[in-house]
């Protein structure tokens, strides 16, 4: 399992570049706000097209400008956990968790019930997203990503919008993910302590 990322993209005045390969279970992208960390995650997810470069995962090429490969976002099977959780407000927690199940079709890592137990959200399944606390919403967002049959996880400052107590709650979940689920994780943060605790490789942007 490894990320191979060599990408470059002009965004207005700024230029986002990255060049790394990683065999760690968690690879952290670390740097100040505005360094292009989120843009880079979007390029790996297929939401933003690099001007040039190559993005591959355990040998499967997701993007290669020289070979003319650009896998559509739906087929990259990224489990993307956004900073602002982005739960669908018109769907209950259970339907949010099930949204990506169509793609998973049997390749799912775990059942919805297992995921809910793992994440401690089993009691929230019938709730609407707007009634959840920040930590609860973020754990549901992680569950939604896990249940979509992902080959890797992208996490964009999943702790940034949480207070200290909720942070620890979500951090423990991510550590268990790293140690038990064993999906490659690309983790974005501007918090040094956080990335040192989680990541095997830290890429500075």
């Amino acid at each position: 399992m490894s990320f191979e990322v060599r990408a470059e993209r002009q965004l207005g005045e700024a230029k986002v570049t990255a060049n790394f390969t990683s065999d760690s279970s968690v690879t952290a992208l670390f740097g100040p706000s505005g360094a292009g960390k989120t843009s880079l995650l979007n390029m790996v997810a297929g939401l933003l097209r690099p001007d040039r470069g190559r993005i591959a995962l355990t040998g499967q090429v997701l993007f290669d400008s020289d070979l003319g490969i650009d896998l559509p976002v739906q087929q990259r099977r990224a489990g993307y956990v956004f900073q602002d959780s982005r739960l669908f407000p018109h769907l209950r927690v259970r339907q949010n968790l099930e949204y990506g199940a169509a793609r998973a079709e049997g390749r799912s890592l775990m059942t919805l019930e297992d995921a809910a137990a793992f994440l401690g959200i089993a009691h929230l399944l019938d709730r609407w997203p707007r009634t959840l606390s920040g930590g609860e919403a973020q754990r549901v967002a992680i569950g939604r990503a896990l249940l979509s049959g992902p080959r890797f996880l992208l996490m964009d400052e999943p702790l940034a919008s949480l207070d200290r107590a909720r942070r620890e709650e979500v951090m423990l979940v991510i550590e268990r993910l790293r140690d038990e689920v064993r999906l490659p994780i690309l983790y974005v943060s501007h918090d040094r302590a956080e990335v040192e605790r989680l990541a095997g490789l830290i890429v500075e942007l």
Partner: peptide
């Protein structure tokens, strides 16, 4: 549009994203 992006990362086609989100 961020919700639509989220739907697409979960595997939804443009049409399904339109229909369900």
């Amino acid at each position: 549009p961020k919700l639509e992006q989220a739907a697409m990362t979960l595997g939804a086609s443009r049409w399904r994203t339109f229909r369900t989100i």
